[in-house]
Amino acid sequence: MIAGLIVLSFIAGLIGSLFGLGGGIIIVPVLTILYDMDAKAAMAVSLVAIVAISTTSASSLVRDNVSNVRVGLRLEVGSAAGAVIGAVIALHLQSWVLVICFAAVLMYSSFYMFLRPEKVVPPGRERTEDDFFYRDTKTGEDVAYTVNNYATGTLGFVAAGITSAMSGVGGGTIKIPVMNAHMHMPMKAATATSSYVIGITAFSGAAVYFLNGVLDPYIQTAAIVVIGAFAGAMIGLRLLRRINASSMRRYFSVLLLFIASVMLMSAGGII
């Protein structure tokens, strides 16, 4: 059991830190199906793992200036508000309706990101507060970019918060396409910023479950998962330094398609 949990959380940590995702889409189904854990407890363990993955990844990505803290803080307000709205909507709407809509959006984002080249807007002659840069460790070059479409991007984050609260997934899977395809942030900056912001989204859920004692019977499972996720995130960070940004975008779009398929099968009761 312990070895299986470590492998599971290691994979979640690796994928999570590479692509700025939480890994809940991997952890929750495995814990409920293979380990016979009830859904609420699985969600609680998964949220703690997401916090661990986010904290480990962001500690390095923020220091290297790849995560954009300012843009992350600004957009995350929308996501946090969306989570509260989602919790209220969840009381009145069947979650499968939203899961199907969400899967459709993921599929669209997947094809869009796979087929269309990345658009990064370089800063103009006069520097503005929306101009940023980071150093790509793969190429050794500084990548300068201007963040566009804040208003609609924030709405995208509100939608991410709503779906996240209602379906338990959807943090990074919506936020990264919004930042990359819509707000024109380079792929590495978008995934790194996602790594930074998903921690705060997962924090509130994890803290509530922890304070309510949902984790108490599963504290050993949580400790194993956190340690595995930490190790996976450390390795993921090493890979991230070597990966090419355009390949990363393609891999991410394939991952989105996979996640959308899993969600549709889950909503249809196939898995």
Partner: peptide, 9 residues
């Protein structure tokens, strides 16, 4: 676990 959870806040 509590230390890990509180860190992002």
């Amino acid at each position: 676990i509590a230390v890990i959870i509180i860190t992002p806040f």
